[in-house]
Simulated scan of single mutants.
Amino acid sequence: MTEQDGGTGRVRPPVHRWLWYALGGGLPARHRSWVLHDTTTRTWGVRHVARALVQMAIPTALVLALVPAGWALRLAVVGGGIFLGLIFSLAYMAETTEQRVIKAGYAPGTAVRAREAASIVRQREESMRKRAAAQRRAARYQQRAGDR
């Protein structure tokens, strides 16, 4: 069963399809706009790390279950593997997410352009918020100066 994302037309994939997607598989066309959202939303970096950890879960489980060594060595190997895997994953984060968007049927560069546009909007909103706060502070200062 799929779940609509707040009336936006984005269809969130069910868990089994998301796991396939996290492992690098493609999603059906109805999830196309969700893939773009997933790779361009404000939390796209966190989502990327979550997908990377899912990818590392299988080798981690195999090492913990099958390596004939003490638990300390197994945990050290798993910790080192996760650390190196995350470094590699973060180094290629933009390229990996762009490939997911291309696989969903978008033109190359779509995710980067969408993230840049969203960043500009966020910067403008932050600027307006700071400007309004400065105006409120100035009004309070003027009021206090007038009370003297």
Rank of each mutant, 00 (worst) to 15 (best):
R32W: 04
S33E: 11
S33F: 02
W34R: 05
V35Q: 04
V35D: 02
V35C: 03
H37Q: 09
H37Y: 14
H37N: 07
D38L: 01
T39W: 03
T39A: 15
T39D: 07
T41C: 15
T41L: 08
T41H: 11
R42F: 12
R42T: 09
R42P: 02
T43L: 15
T43G: 12
T43V: 13
T43N: 11
G45R: 09
V46I: 15
V46D: 10
V46S: 11
R47K: 15
H48C: 05
H48E: 10
H48T: 03
H48L: 07
V49R: 01
V49Y: 04
A50D: 12
A50I: 13
R51N: 12
R51D: 14
A52Y: 04
A52E: 13
L53P: 05
L53Q: 10
V54G: 07
V54I: 14
V54S: 07
Q55N: 10
Q55D: 07
Q55L: 11
Q55W: 05
Q55C: 11
Q55E: 09
M56H: 09
A57F: 09
A57V: 08
A57N: 05
I58P: 05
I58D: 02
P59I: 04
P59E: 04
T60W: 03
A61N: 04
L62V: 12
L62N: 01
L62Y: 09
L62D: 02
V63W: 00
L66K: 15
L66G: 12
V67S: 11
P68W: 15
A69H: 09
A69L: 14
A69M: 13
G70V: 05
G70K: 06
W71D: 15
W71K: 09
A72Q: 09
A72I: 09
L73S: 07
L73G: 04
L75R: 13
L75C: 13
A76K: 06
A76G: 08
V77N: 01
V77K: 06
V77G: 03
V78Q: 00
V78P: 00
V78H: 00
G80A: 08
G80E: 03
G80V: 03
G81P: 03
G81L: 01
G81W: 00
I82D: 03
I82Q: 04
I82P: 02
